[in-house]
Design a protein around this nucleic acid. Sequence first.
DNA 1: TTGTAGGCGTTATCAT
DNA 2: ATGATAACGCCTACAA
Lengths: 340, 340
Amino acid sequence: MAEKVTIYDISKKLKISAATVSRALNNNPKISEKTRELVLKTATEMNYKQNRLAQALKSGRTNNVGVIVPFINRSFFSSVIRGIEEELSPHGYHVIICQTHEDVNNEIKQIDTLLNTQVDGIFMSVAKTTQDTTHIQKALAENTPLVFFDRKKDVKGLSSVVIDDFKGGYLATKHLIEQGCKKIAHFSGDLNVEIYKNRRQGYLKALKDNGITPLKRFSLPVNSKLESGTSAVKDLWKFDEKPDAIFSSSDYAALGAIQELRQMGIKIPEEVCVVGFSNEPFTKYMELPITSVDQTPFEMGKIAAQVFLEQIEGSKTLTIEKKVVLTPELYIRDSSNRKL
Amino acid sequence: MAEKVTIYDISKKLKISAATVSRALNNNPKISEKTRELVLKTATEMNYKQNRLAQALKSGRTNNVGVIVPFINRSFFSSVIRGIEEELSPHGYHVIICQTHEDVNNEIKQIDTLLNTQVDGIFMSVAKTTQDTTHIQKALAENTPLVFFDRKKDVKGLSSVVIDDFKGGYLATKHLIEQGCKKIAHFSGDLNVEIYKNRRQGYLKALKDNGITPLKRFSLPVNSKLESGTSAVKDLWKFDEKPDAIFSSSDYAALGAIQELRQMGIKIPEEVCVVGFSNEPFTKYMELPITSVDQTPFEMGKIAAQVFLEQIEGSKTLTIEKKVVLTPELYIRDSSNRKL
DNA sequence: TTGTAGGCGTTATCAT
DNA sequence: ATGATAACGCCTACAA
């Protein structure tokens, strides 16, 4: 095992003090050009590597950030993380990932251990079950920047980067109306979760703006599973008055719906148009590609990272609370494209 | 901002030495039960949190591990990472992620910064372009356990967890033969990459074992893009003698092939059976679900983590070089299931 | 059982 | 411009 070489080793070899070596290494102006170059040269010669731990202990900055998500292997989250990583890594930050499994208790633990490990910042998408925010306020109390993305909570002093879910819902619904659909059903997620509530609001507004009275029966909750989409369709089609379109807050439920509709011999998009949400990778690969609302996760991650950087580099005294809202993008595909 | 409370604060309050506090906190046996409890109690009262940085500086262990992958938002990699995280987080480790973008130069940098930041271990899937392994040996030189997963290099002293790609190729091909296919084409990836080479070997062996002479023309390289699958099909179908099956080393190329075959009016699986590799999420969602070889990424991550833990906890002197080979699983779906 | 003291590697302050 | 020293917070011989 190669022995670690410290600034003391360099200082001994050069017969100068460790302080001088440190200065040379840190581009401190108070040092002669000659010694600086000498130090730098011998440092590389001796294969010196700065001990970031010691540095961190001294400075209180680790150059690590934490990202807390429900599950890291969801397409959306892993793309956000990628965005964060690619924006931050040039600045020398490392990204630590944590999963909550949609459980607040884990969320609490993760925040605790991240703060404990002295991360310079935290990015998070809250768990669906999260209501209370005292654990989140801890970050604030310790002066650690925390940036929400996608699923946020309103906590004074904390920034967030989200998409305009209302607009997403609006766009999707408006598109369906433009395809000639008049009886548009909506699969909403858990309405206690802000994003799902907003998507639904957008849906309702689009209907209203176009003089369509929403049928209560046409709005029903699903989870992000195929089966919940198929059963929702079964429920809807029990009645005489059938929908001529479905706007689903979940791509998975949308796919389940499509499978069930086909099963029933219903033509898509001729008889029923379907639009999903999230632009999951599979939507574009289907034989009948599914129209979906893209949440620009990669962008979202990059921007969240930028917000963090501003916060870090900006004057510490002034607490910045930045709320970024990205515009979602509708990808129109065959499941709803009647090519009028 | 809440002031950090240290063991000194506790020691002052309790009028005992910091050393005693430290011992109490660390379950050191050399301490009376009374003082231990007292310390523990006041510690929580004062909301004491161990400074892991100081601890790390002292002990040389950070409780961080690094994971290096080409891209973290690939379904396969993010699932492996999830496995690693879930296995390691109960042991108090944090997972730092790094991306190489399939570029060796990034790989070199990442290993450097990870070692520099004193991670306790490194997990990695090498970039496709990686040939030389000197940067990897650095980890060995610094005595930092490094575990390869999926894409490995043969470096003495380093462990790896991979799937049996040969077997994967064999299974897929054998299955096609069992479906009655005799003229089986193969889409291979870059044959300089071990895993693709092995899959192809498995394919060839299965043919041989069943008395089928492989046609050289039937084996052609693709990348992991849809288009490369469609163009490969175009190339194959230029000749009079058409394949009756395709085993693709990439699910994406398999999908491209399927799209092209359908375009040409060829029935799947009746006329041509198709099998992919990786079990990408979309394969099971298709209207014509695609048969594919699953690489058990989640398992792979968990086991890689276990190998690391053994290494860390095992006696330091004995270098363990563990090679784990997981068995891939064939998911038979409609694209190749003739339901004989 | 408890306390003292030194050190992990770095940087910042104060002298020189 | 450079050197000595203390400090970041913790742990661990060694001493008591």
